[in-house]
Design a protein around this nucleic acid. Structure first.
Length: 431
RNA sequence: GUGGGUAUAGCUCAGCUGGUUAGAGCGCCUGGUUGUGGUCCAGGAGGUCGCGGGUUCGAACCCCGUUACUCACCCCA
């Protein structure tokens, strides 16, 4: 394996990663803008945390037993010998930043960030994917659960998505969950022979997982398993009731799913997912929940928290399937064609851009015909022609590329004002 | 980590039971129109047939390996 030109091999983006190219990225910009608007409506400010963190943050916060941290984390040692990891989820970093800066709670933040998990890629699943999400720290009031859910639903609805399902569950807290887990273990031990091989081994370590298993055998056993709802302590019970009431009041439909178990250890009480049935499978668009113990686990004062993350790639995949959230390509208003020596184009383009007119041009003395071709392909509304005749008369020929080729000659000095007026009076869109 | 499918031009693909100069559509460039795009016509550029090895007189095609892409499982966004 040499690196010289003789054996020059094209390098590709790493497995499970993708480039986001100009054009396709317009949709991302629009999506981020939409999410930012919703976040602002609900009182959230943008937070950015490092792409990588001390690996202990995730091991401690998310849990070593979890698939995400135990098997899928990108870990590396930096040049100073420190154990680091690319973030495999968004919440731990936000909590760490909160503890480092110590703002007065409540603390509300939204983010848009790349997430890294070392797993086999497939449709809607990548080694680097991107999530938008929010976190609220310092409020235990169940009404905030409803607000968090509301923001998530508003966002998805705002994109134009329809027919998704909000799955809701409660996982109890430190007062009632341990006892429930014991009951569950006891129950599964009694039915161990009926479970699938994989889960028979998991009874002690993570009995909740079994509730989520899709195999026939586990499913059958799960039906008769004790329910978390029956085991909730009084506080968790009233909290959950108030959350449901709030959702009803907001007119947000939900589906109680007692088998809903989140993959990260820190969740307490409210847990939720928004899924979309694609016909040939189900796609999780958004997931999250309450994590009232996480701040303490990371060494901070007892502070409740709740949040969600939503995968951008998946959400856009869902939009594709539903033929929704199509973002028209952005094109310039003007395209300058110069068949003289290019100086006129150079100066005109600069003037128009300074005047706020999106403008492109051709380079390198190509024929007028070919410059018109590129002008057309750029999607520009107007072609501005500067040739010998225009130079001599101090004019610019303006051709409407979107109509039937209407053309007029304006004074060079009036081009900017002509186009400025058109920006206001002409309806947008060029597709 | 496990299993399936695929790999031929910039893109989407064809290429019969192995047969010699590897094709189409779209895109790109040039010309038809020495000042005009979006339509039409003509021409042109562009390919180590993923990579390595094997079988054969002969391999894009068959066999083995390998890499990548892709889909599914696990898990998740």
């Amino acid at each position: 394996m040499s690196d010289d030109a003789a054996s020059l091999e094209l390098l590709r983006a790493p497995v499970g990663t993708h480039d986001l190219l100009p054009g396709a990225s317009d949709r991302w910009v629009a999506l981020l803008g939409l999410f930012a608007n919703h976040a602002h409506l609900y009182g959230y400010g943008l937070i950015q945390t490092p792409l990588f963190e001390d690996v202990r943050l995730f091991k401690r916060g998310v849990g070593t037993e979890t698939e995400v941290v135990g098997k899928e984390m990108y870990e590396f040692e930096d040049r100073g010998g420190r154990a680091m990891a690319l973030r495999p989820e968004g919440t731990a970093s936000v909590v760490r930043a909160f503890l480092q800066a110590r703002p007065t709670p409540p603390f509300r933040a939204w983010y848009a960030a790349p997430i890294f998990r070392y797993e086999r890629p497939q449709a809607g699943r990548y080694r680097q994917h991107h999530q938008v999400g929010i976190e609220v720290l310092g409020i235990s009031d169940p009404d905030v659960d409803v607000e968090v859910l509301g923001l998530g639903i508003d966002y998805l609805t705002g994109l134009g998505l329809q027919g998704f399902t909000l799955r809701l569950n409660t996982l109890g807290d430190s007062a009632c969950r341990p006892q429930y887990l014991e009951e569950l273990r006891a129950y599964f031990h009694d039915h161990a022979p009926e479970l699938c091989d994989e889960h028979a081994a998991k009874i002690d370590r993570n009995p909740l997982r079994i509730l989520d298993c899709k195999t026939e055998s586990c499913r059958a056993v799960s039906v008769g398993a004790p329910s978390m709802l029956d085991a909730l302590c009084v506080d968790c019970g009233t909290h959950f009731e108030r959350v449901k009431e709030g959702l009803d009041a907001r007119g947000i439909a939900y589906f109680l799913d007692q088998r809903l178990v989140r993959g990260l250890d820190y969740y307490t009480r409210t847990a939720f997912e928004v899924t979309l049935d694609l016909g040939d499978g189900e796609l999780t668009l958004l997931g999250g929940g309450r994590y009232d113990g996480l701040v303490e686990v990371l060494g901070g004062p007892s502070t409740p928290g709740i949040g969600f993350g939503s995968g951008i790639e998946r959400v856009l995949l869902a939009c594709d399937r539903q033929g929704v959230f199509a973002v028209p390509p952005r094109s310039p208003l003007a395209y300058v064609i110069d068949t003289t020596d290019g100086r006129a184009a150079r100066d005109l383009v600069a003037e128009l851009r300074a005047g706020g007119i999106a403008t492109e041009r051709a380079y390198g003395n190509r024929s007028m015909k070919s410059q018109f071709k590129t002008a057309d392909r750029s999607g520009a509304r107007f072609a501005l022609v500067v040739g010998e005749r225009e130079l001599e008369s101090g004019t610019v020929t303006i051709r409407d590329l979107r109509g039937d080729g209407e053309q007029l000659v304006v004074l060079r000095a009036e081009v900017l004002s002509f186009l400025s007026n058109r920006t206001i009076t002409t309806p947008e869109g060029s597709s």
